[in-house]
Design a binder for these strands. Structure first.
Lengths: 352, 352
DNA sequence: CTGAAAGCGCTTACAG
DNA sequence: CTGAAAGCGCTTACAG
């Protein structure tokens, strides 16, 4: 695997390797335009105040030489790298559209995005994030999975944990927005359901915690019954296990699952017990994954604008990096219930 | 959105922004260790030949100062950035585990990985890849989606298109390995199926092309009948449409879908026509997505080691960047058929 | 085996 | 409004 020491010098280019092509420098542009290189520098930094004639000469020279400022040199001098990092969770479940939105936004804002993969659990990940934060190469970090330490307290560079509560933003992040759970329960209650089960996601995730919280609050506020909350991971097997180990007389007629995978496992588990979905058991998912839309029965779920979430997360990170106040994000317009085939009227109390 | 010009200088740090912390320099380490800074440089570049006593002094100084070489300065001087880029497809379908494997491997090998998101289609993406290749900041690019130009012919930096045929490697990349299709058809034929349909992926992807190719070859070699090949995108709707628009008398009893999403759409479409799966129609997917495992009926599919694919792709890219011969990848051990519930014996010729 | 000099390509004060 | 000087933190020859 080669040397894993991040501080060691990279392997030398072998004889076969093509030499990196030479690029025009700011001096060459300056010479061609007949100005000093500082003037060219100003030109690129939008400092304005250049005489139109000067500007035109530089325009031409830049075009002719196909000059692009060397960002490395700039970064070295300004001590700002303009690089952000996003840390993947090691679990198989994570929102890919979110990455897309994040990457797009980062580039639009003039930054670059380093992708960090992490093997192992929260410990390894947290360790790695610390390293990156201390590397001096990255100006801000978005972690898509929980960390062991309090990110807001870290002082070297801003660290945002996806969906985690952040004191500086006075409220929940939208990734962590659990309020649709309330709508789900209200909808289900309207269908006659009285006894619920919540198959929660791993509580290290703010999103999972919030959904659980709202579940418990709503059940209580509406004077409904919760058979309980089952905690696990994000994967389908947990949903399957949750439902297959449910006592026959639990009275549960509706399950609120923390995501579609879990919901899918719940449906499969119910079917394996001979329960019909939704006749015997209603199941609600979260994420609007394409597979769930085409499953039979098709999953009732919560549509989520992942791309916007990625975008907003990055906008907030960038604000933090720049020392600007973090933008507030509108929570309410984001999530939307989609009723499909896994939810229906509660079966008669007579039972299965 | 701010200025989108990649050459313009970044916005200045506002008054609120924390100053980047000062880091120890090589000179400070040298002074503390009582040696010249070149010697410290040598120490970090593993040049060897340092007197044990010298090494120890440097060890201590580095530890005390918590010194990390400034990679920016190094990159500037060596003209090697050690940065690679991975370009996401803009479609919602892409292998996330692959990203994980890629990122991990890149870091292990001492490189960094820039994540590029692209809005729009192949034109925009190709344009963007060109820009990146010409930026001088990135030494190699892996594109997870097709490009308009021939990547192998690009001369500035190595560009690898995932799964695409690459002359330099004498064969198909493993992402593009379509050979399991042969096994699928053999398996299905053993179950009595004679008339097949292939729901192919978008033919811009080498993986989709290869699966189709192997499908056609195998059908012919085994003297089976193909009702046809339906081309579309990677998403479930195409599978749904393919099957719902199939004439009632097509005679098709088995569908080979290019991925699980498509297969899911096919199953749903068949069910919507009142066909039973697998009694009336057998369906095979590809990817072993978790949702498909818990669907009802559970998808028969091809297990794929996405992480290894990402790893191998990066190993090849890095080899190209270094000018070393690209490592060959073993194709055969990667993919494995998983028989579940969407495949079964062909129904009697009597028909539906 | 180790040190003094030069330079990678920019930007930031500072003069004019 | 524009130019000469210094320096960001390293590495690469080149001497000793």
């Amino acid at each position: 695997m080669g040397c894993q020491c991040p501080h060691s010098a990279p392997p030398r280019r072998t004889a076969l390797a093509p030499e990196p092509p030479r690029r025009a420098t700011i001096h060459e542009v300056a010479r061609l335009a007949g100005v000093s290189h500082q003037t060219v520098s100003r030109y690129f930094r939008h400092n304005g105040g250049l005489k139109p004639a000067t500007r035109e000469k530089i325009d031409a020279a830049v075009k002719e030489l196909d000059y692009h400022p060397n960002l490395l040199a700039r970064a070295m001098r300004t001590r700002r790298t303009n690089r952000l990092a996003v840390v993947l969770p090691s679990a198989s479940y994570f929102p890919l559209r979110l990455l897309d939105g994040a990457a797009l936004t980062v580039h639009e804002m003039g930054y670059q995005l380093e992708l960090i993969g992490v093997e192992g659990g929260i410990e390894t990940r947290s360790e790695r994030v610390r390293e990156i934060a201390d590397s001096g190469q990255i100006e801000g970090i978005l972690s898509l999975a929980p960390l062991t330490f309090d990110a807001t307290a870290h002082n070297r560079v801003p660290i945002l944990v996806t969906g985690d509560y952040d004191d500086r933003m006075r409220g929940m992040g939208q990734l962590a927005d659990g309020s649709p759970v309330k709508e789900i329960i209200e909808y289900l209650a309207g269908l006659g359901h009285r006894t619920f089960l919540h198959v929660a996601g791993p509580q290290g995730y703010a999103s999972a915690r919030n959904r659980r919280l709202v579940y418990e609050e709503t059940i209580e506020a509406m004077r409904l019954t919760s058979y309980g909350v089952i905690e696990g991971g994000w994967s389908a097997q947990y949903g399957y296990d949750a439902i297959t180990s449910l006592p026959a007389d639990s009275g549960v007629t509706a399950v609120v699952a923390a995501n579609d995978l879990l919901a899918m496992g719940v449906v499969r588990g119910a079917l394996s017990r001979g329960w019909m979905v939704p006749q015997d058991l209603s199941v609600f998912g979260w994420d609007d994954e394409e597979m769930g839309r085409f499953a039979t029965p098709a999953l009732s779920t919560v549509a989520v604008d992942r791309e916007k979430q990625g975008r907003d997360a990055m906008l907030r990170l960038i604000a933090a990096v720049r020392g600007e106040p973090m933008p507030e994000v509108a929570e309410s317009t984001l999530n939307q219930l989609i009723i499909r085939e896994t939810t229906g009227a509660a079966r008669r109390p007579a039972g299965r």
